[in-house]
């Protein structure tokens, strides 16, 4: 009997086969001449426009859109230019996920929609204005306050590791569409992943002037990033947006604009003293007496035993607290 116990690492891949989550599996589902069903969200009607398209080998979403424009809907509005994953203009949502039309294989049944979080001009074309205005506001360029030390300037690949990842961006707006915080509109001042990647290209360059970088970072609302990695998941350029752009920018923000990192610094301080996070201690450290404004919730949590104020105020020395102090004590402040 074959064991059904998965080998280490396999559980996190459950769904790959079942949901045809490889290019080979997707291609196997279609043969030359098969009919593809493509529904397109058009701006002049609430209903999805449905098209039947004959499949051709290696067919991409862009090929399907072109076929529709050539044969059935010459007024369909969509953008593309290079057709080879470089210009970043053809991004759309296919079955709920952001893709580049020029680089995505078709599926037997697909719904094509415009990107989210940007105004729609017509059909699949979105207005990139909000992104462009934010980038312009951040002034993502290098400024030097001192004379160059001479040429060539000493600059290692390690120093440029993160900025060079950000430089791979093709500005397609997939990440901007996938970001849940941007989806909340004006609720926060979060700049969003795409503008932060643009900023990261120069703000993470060690040659940039720190005062200039601090000025830009102050406009980003960067600590409103929820670290969900949805931007990374849809990035066609495979940029590690959270770990190699947003987090290094957060580190710079904490150093250059510490008021923006109050919560992060508070968590660090709590762990340094206790070794673990006591939620009540963290909330009190972040909000101070303002935390009392939410007294009703505190009482509810207390009633359910969710918070333990004795533990918060009468803290004990433990091996964990000793480790917190040892490794996050003042001498370790970066």
């Amino acid at each position: 009997m074959v064991s059904d116990v998965l080998t280490p690492g396999e559980a996190r891949q459950l769904g790959r086969l079942e949901r045809h989550d490889t290019l080979e599996a997707r291609n196997r589902r279609l043969a030359e001449g098969d009919a593809i069903t493509m529904r397109v969200r058009r701006s002049d009607t609430a209903r999805l426009a449905e098209f039947r398209i004959p499949y051709r080998k290696w067919m991409r979403v862009l090929d399907a859109l072109n076929w529709v424009a050539d044969n059935q809907a010459p007024d369909l509005a969509y953008r593309w230019f290079c057709g080879s994953k470089m210009c970043g203009t053809c991004a759309v949502r296919m079955n709920g996920r952001e893709v580049l039309a020029c680089w995505e294989a078709v599926e037997p049944d697909m719904t094509i929609e415009p990107l989210r979080n940007l105004p729609i001009i017509r059909d699949l074309m979105v207005d990139r204005g909000p992104f462009e205005r934010k980038v312009e506001q951040l002034e993502p360029w290098l400024e030097r306050s001192e004379a160059y030390s001479g040429f060539p300037e000493p600059l290692s690949h390690k120093q440029m590791k993160n900025a060079s990842k950000a430089l791979d961006c093709i500005g397609c707006m997939c990440c901007y569409s996938a970001c849940p915080v941007i989806g909340l509109g004006d609720l926060t001042d979060f700049a969003g992943p795409a503008p932060l990647v643009q900023l990261g290209q120069t703000a993470l360059d060690p040659r940039n002037d720190a005062t200039k970088v601090a000025w830009s970072l102050a406009l980003t609302g960067i600590f409103n990033c929820v670290s969900c990695y949805k931007c990374e998941e849809v990035c066609p350029a495979s940029i590690p947006i959270v770990s190699q752009v947003i987090e290094p920018l957060k580190a710079k923000t904490a150093a250059l604009v510490p008021d923006m990192a109050k919560h992060s610094n508070a968590l660090r301080a709590v762990v340094a003293v206790r070794g673990y996070v006591d939620p009540s201690a963290l909330v009190l450290k972040v909000h101070g007496l303002k935390a009392l404004l939410n007294l009703r919730r505190a009482l509810r949590l207390l009633f359910r035993g969710k918070i333990n104020l004795l533990r918060t105020f009468l803290r004990r020395k433990t091996p964990a607290s000793a480790a917190g102090a040892r490794y996050l004590g003042r001498e370790d402040v970066p």
Partner: peptide, 12 residues
């Protein structure tokens, strides 16, 4: 100890 949540990895 705590693993540092999302905060420590960014600032330290």
């Amino acid at each position: 100890t705590c693993t540092g949540a999302r905060e420590l990895r960014a600032i330290d």
